[in-house]
C-alpha cells in the first residue's frame, strides 16, 4: 500500500498532465476507428452498388427495350432471339418463375419432415449423440459443394427417375430431391438450434404436470421453437431458390411451362447460368437475363425480410 501511495505522490504532476492533455492512446483509437469504419463502408457500398447495378440493367429490359411488364411476368414462351406475333420479343419469364418456386417449395416439403424428426431426436431424445456425432456430421454436409450434389443427382436420381416413371428422368422432381439433400443440413442444424434454445424450465413444467415426453414435445417445445423453425425453413428456401449449378444439372433445362413433375423444366438460376456467357452486353437477350437476376435478387431480399419479421415477432413474444 505504502509503495503505491509513494508512487502516486511522486508521479502527481505527470498524471495531472495525462488527464488534462491528449492521451497518447488516442491516436491508436482514431486509427482503429478509421480502419473499421472503412471496412463497414466497403461492405455497404458493395451491397448498394450490387443492387443498383442488377436493378438498372434489369430495368433496361422494360425501359430501353420496351418490353411490357405483363409479357415478361405473364408470358409463357422464352426465346429472346425471336419476336412473337405481336412483334414483342418472346421473353416470357413465367416458366422459370414457376419452375423456381416449384423446386423450392417441393424440396422444402421433402426435407422438412426429416429435418424436424432429426432435430427432435438429437435435442429431446439423444442429446449426447446429437452433440458428439450428429452436429459435426451436419456441418460437414453443409460444406459439401453443390456440384457434388448435382453429380449425385445426375448419377443416381436421374437414372432412378427414368426407370421409375420413364421419360428422360430430368425434371422438377429430380431437382427437388437434389435440393432437398442440399438444404436438409441447413434446416436441420437451424431447427436443432431452435429446439435447443427452448429453456429446460418449460420441459420441467410440462413433466411436472405429468405430461409424457411426446405431449411435452408437441404441446410445449415445438410451439415455443416455432419462430426458429420457421426461420430454418425460410433459410432453406432461400438456399434452394438461389441454387444454380446442382439444379441445372438435373432439371433438364427446357424453358417451357412445367408440364408435370417428371418433364424437363428450368428455373431462373438455371437459365441464367446457361445463357449469361453467350449474349453480348447491352443487347435485349442480355438485358432480360439481368431482369431475371433482378427477380432472383428481390426474392432473396423478401426471404431475408421474412426472417427478420419472424425474429422480431419471436423477440416480442419473449418479452
Amino acid at each position: 500500500m505504502t509503495a503505491i501511495g509513494e508512487k502516486t505522490v511522486s508521479n502527481k504532476s505527470e498524471s495531472t498532465a495525462e488527464v488534462v492533455g491528449v492521451s497518447p492512446k488516442r491516436g491508436i483509437e482514431r486509427r482503429g476507428q478509421i480502419i473499421t469504419g472503412l471496412c463497414v463502408t466497403l461492405v455497404v457500398v458493395l451491397v448498394v452498388t450490387l443492387i443498383f447495378m442488377v436493378c438498372s440493367r434489369g430495368l433496361a429490359t422494360f425501359t430501353k427495350d420496351g418490353i411490357p411488364l405483363g409479357s415478361f411476368f405473364g408470358g409463357t414462351t422464352w426465346n429472346p432471339h425471336q419476336n412473337g406475333a405481336d412483334g414483342v420479343p418472346l421473353v416470357g419469364a413465367l416458366p422459370m418463375i414457376v419452375g423456381s418456386f416449384s423446386v423450392t417449395l417441393l424440396s422444402c416439403l421433402i426435407a422438412l419432415p426429416f429435418a424436424l424428426g432429426a432435430s427432435i431426436f438429437v435435442v429431446e431424445i439423444a442429446p449426447g449423440f446429437g452433440s458428439k456425432i450428429f452436429r459435426p456430421l451436419t456441418e460437414v454436409l453443409v460444406g459439401i459443394p453443390s456440384v457434388v450434389f448435382g453429380l449425385v443427382g445426375l448419377g443416381i436420381i436421374v437414372p432412378w427417375m427414368r426407370g421409375l416413371v420413364g421419360g428422360t428422368g430430368y425434371g422438377i422432381l429430380s431437382a427437388s430431391i437434389v435440393l432437398a439433400f442440399m438444404i436438409l443440413p441447413t434446416i436441420t442444424s437451424l431447427s436443432t438450434d431452435a429446439l435447443a434454445a427452448v429453456p429446460n424450465s418449460y420441459r420441467d413444467g410440462s413433466y411436472g404436470l405429468g405430461c409424457t415426453r411426446w405431449q411435452t414435445i408437441v404441446g410445449v417445445v415445438l410451439p415455443s421453437a416455432l419462430p426458429g423453425i420457421l426461420t430454418a425453413i425460410i433459410m432453406g428456401m432461400s438456399r434452394a431458390f438461389g441454387e444454380a449449378l446442382a439444379v441445372q444439372m438435373v432439371i433438364g433445362n427446357a424453358a417451357q411451362m412445367p408440364q408435370g413433375l417428371f418433364t424437363p423444366a428450368s428455373t431462373l438460376t438455371s437459365v441464367l447460368t446457361m445463357g449469361m456467357g453467350n449474349e453480348a452486353m447491352g443487347t435485349l437477350p442480355n438485358d432480360v437475363l439481368w431482369a431475371l437476376a433482378m427477380v432472383l435478387l428481390i426474392m432473396s431480399l423478401v426471404f431475408i425480410l421474412i426472417v427478420h419479421l419472424i425474429g422480431r415477432k419471436g423477440a416480442a413474444k419473449n418479452d
Binding site: P199, S201, Y202, D204, G205, S206, G208, G219, V220, P223, S224, K317
Partner: peptide, 8 residues
Amino acid sequence: FQQPNPFR
C-alpha cells in the same frame, strides 16, 4: 418451480 415458467 423457482422461475415462473408458463408455456408460450
